[in-house]
Simulated assay, not measured.
Amino acid sequence: MTDNNTHPARWMIYGANGYTGELIARAAVKQGLRPLLAGRSPEKVQKLAQELGTDAVAFSLDNATQAAAAINGCSIVLNCAGPFSATAEPMMKACLQAKSHYLDITGEIAVFELAQSLHQQAKTAGIVICPGVGFDVIPTDCVAAALKAALPDATHLALGFDSRSGFSPGTAKTSVEGLAQGGKIRRDGKIVSVPLAYKIRRIDFGDGEKEAMTIPWGDVSTAYHTTGIPDIEVFIPGSPAMIANAKRANYFRRLLGIRWVQNLIKARIEKTVKGPDEAKRATMPTYVWGEATNARGERKTARIRTANGYSLTITGSLAVVNYLLQQQPEGGAYTPARLISPELVSQLPESGEMQIS
């Protein structure tokens, strides 16, 4: 990193008191790392920091200059405070001011596109901006990169995953926001809006063939920046009832976009949704799939079995943190597979080998 006299081991987890942020903080300390824990609530972050024997700081992201002052001296900020529609932009701007690398665990298309728009500023500042260093989007991004290598002239890319890990409160809130915005795919290199459950097809993600539907997932942005493939869709399996409900939601998603309706649903989520515990996470692997086709109709398919999405978010985000603590890549906006390599997912605990046929 340029002209940044930070101690390489000083780095921050923002949103450390959230469900996933706390899991990452605990795992980091077990690895011998000493992250500075941060968030909006002084009581919550200080309590966790005291328990883990590390330092804490509390600040909001309402003022980018104040946030930059709070992160000054940190070589990396790992943002775990979702929904990232509210936190990513102010924290990215604070990181540009403080010359700190920016990472997060988002799956939000708009955040990935924002990161790419800041590429030149990040390059000038000598910092890496790499959102999506968790389950969103490490496994699918690595699958996309591997398929591009296997079929360099691919024109169409379909990606997907079969996961049963349930939602944390932050993920559930993000999903509510996503429903209001409808479906998204990439067509001819451009992100376009489509209805929810726009396309239905049968897919074997690695655990038997299942009915699947398109979803507005982060790879609609990131896979394009990783591969350059112009047409991209992302799928998840769904029961007939789930697919029917998604299609039905198209009729009232404008209602979901009204702020007070969103706030009502999010308040309900805050009270009722709890993320899966360690025992539950351990019994829930994820199956990740991808398919690339070219203009001649040639096809390559990739599959990999990984840890549960939350477990992979812990190990994946810390793998990227450790990489940046040891390496000095050129500044700019990255996707995980471009920052490290398509082999990143295979190197994480509980991952199998990627199979390409």
Rank of each mutant, 00 (worst) to 15 (best):
L48M: 14
L48Q: 02
Q50K: 15
Q50S: 15
Q50M: 12
E51N: 02
L52I: 04
T54D: 01
T54L: 03
A58F: 09
A58G: 05
A58Y: 04
A58V: 08
F59Q: 07
S60L: 06
L61V: 15
L61P: 08
D62Q: 13
N63K: 10
N63W: 01
A64V: 15
T65D: 14
T65S: 12
A67R: 06
A67L: 04
A67H: 11
A70R: 14
A70S: 15
A70C: 08
I71Q: 01
G73H: 08
C74G: 08
S75Q: 12
I76R: 00
V77G: 00
L78R: 08
N79H: 03
N79T: 07
N79F: 03
C80P: 06
A81G: 11
G82E: 05
P83Y: 08
P83F: 06
P83N: 07
S85P: 03
A86D: 14
T87G: 07
A88I: 11
A88H: 10
E89K: 15
E89D: 06
E89Y: 03
P90Y: 12
P90C: 09
P90D: 06
M91E: 08
M91L: 09
K93D: 14
K93P: 01
K93R: 15
K93W: 04
A94F: 07
A94E: 01
C95Y: 10
L96R: 13
A98F: 10
K99C: 07
K99I: 05
K99S: 12
K99W: 02
H101C: 11
L103E: 04
L103T: 00
D104L: 09
T106D: 09
G107V: 12
E108W: 12
A110I: 05
A110V: 14
E113V: 07
S117E: 08
Q120H: 15
Q121F: 02
Q121I: 03
A122V: 10
A122W: 13
K123C: 01
K123D: 06
T124I: 09
T124N: 10
G126V: 02
I127S: 03
I127Y: 08
V128C: 05
V128T: 13
I129Q: 04
C130A: 12
P131F: 12
G132A: 15
G132M: 06
V133N: 12
G134R: 01
D136H: 04
D136R: 00
V137M: 11
V137R: 01
V137A: 09
I138L: 06
I138F: 10
P139H: 11
P139D: 09
T140F: 00
T140W: 00
C142A: 11
C142F: 13
C142K: 08
A144N: 14
A145H: 12
A145L: 11
A146E: 01
A146F: 00
L147I: 08
L147P: 02
A150L: 09
L151R: 00
P152R: 00
P152Y: 11
D153N: 13
D153V: 05
D153M: 06
A154S: 02
T155D: 10
T155S: 13
H156W: 03
H156P: 00
H156Y: 07
L157C: 04
L157T: 00
A158G: 01
A158H: 12
A158K: 15
L159N: 11
F161Y: 13
F161A: 06
D162W: 04
S163K: 02
R164D: 05
S165F: 12
S165P: 02
